[in-house]
């Protein structure tokens, strides 16, 4: 893959231990600015990654993988309502669209904070899926991380998964 500047992209970025904090920071900023929602670190991480709605954005180039956001349907509706400024409960496609766009902005904000990725990593358009009957596979140890932030008393899960 080549960047838009025509330079070959350096590939195989290793997972950097700082990225978790950077993703957390990106998520907090995006939720505050676009959903007027204060999300905060949880003193204790919930054991299970729960949630019915998952948005994901693919990364390609210097870093290949994806960033996901997962939350309950209720949280997704609340976030969409805050973004739209009107009740989103009766509009499931808007709810999915809102979570997808939050994921898109979190991914973009995350990579813009990392110099080695900003110009060398492309984002896919977001995909949103419903359902709880799947698990996120980490292909090998150190190939990603996940964490939950508190959004009005409920966890919203964020993850970065890196592919070889």
């Amino acid at each position: 893959m080549r960047s838009t500047l025509g330079q070959p992209m350096p590939t195989n970025s290793q997972l950097d231990p700082h990225w978790k904090g950077i993703l957390e920071c990106a998520a907090i900023e995006v939720f505050a600015m676009m959903a007027n929602s204060e999300i905060t670190p949880m003193p204790e991480q919930p054991e299970q990654q729960q949630g019915e709605q998952t948005a994901m954005v693919g990364l390609a180039g210097a870093l290949c993988g994806m960033i996901t956001i997962r939350c309950s349907k209720e949280s997704a509706v609340k976030l969409a309502t805050r973004m739209l400024g009107e009740d989103a409960k009766s509009n499931p496609s808007m709810v999915g669209d809102a979570l997808g766009e939050l994921c898109n902005m979190v991914a973009g904000n995350f990579k813009s904070k990392i110099t080695s990725l900003a110009d060398h990593c492309m984002l896919s358009v977001p995909t949103v899926i419903w359902g709880e009957d799947y698990v996120m596979q980490m292909v090998k140890p150190n190939s990603g991380f996940q964490f939950a932030l508190d959004c009005e008393g409920r966890p919203v899960w964020f993850s970065l998964v890196i592919h070889d």
Binding site: K113, A118, D119
Partner: peptide, 12 residues
């Protein structure tokens, strides 16, 4: 209006 952190795409 873009999420791109990429200067390259903005310059383009």
């Amino acid at each position: 209006i873009t999420t791109e952190g990429s200067e390259a795409r903005v310059v383009e």
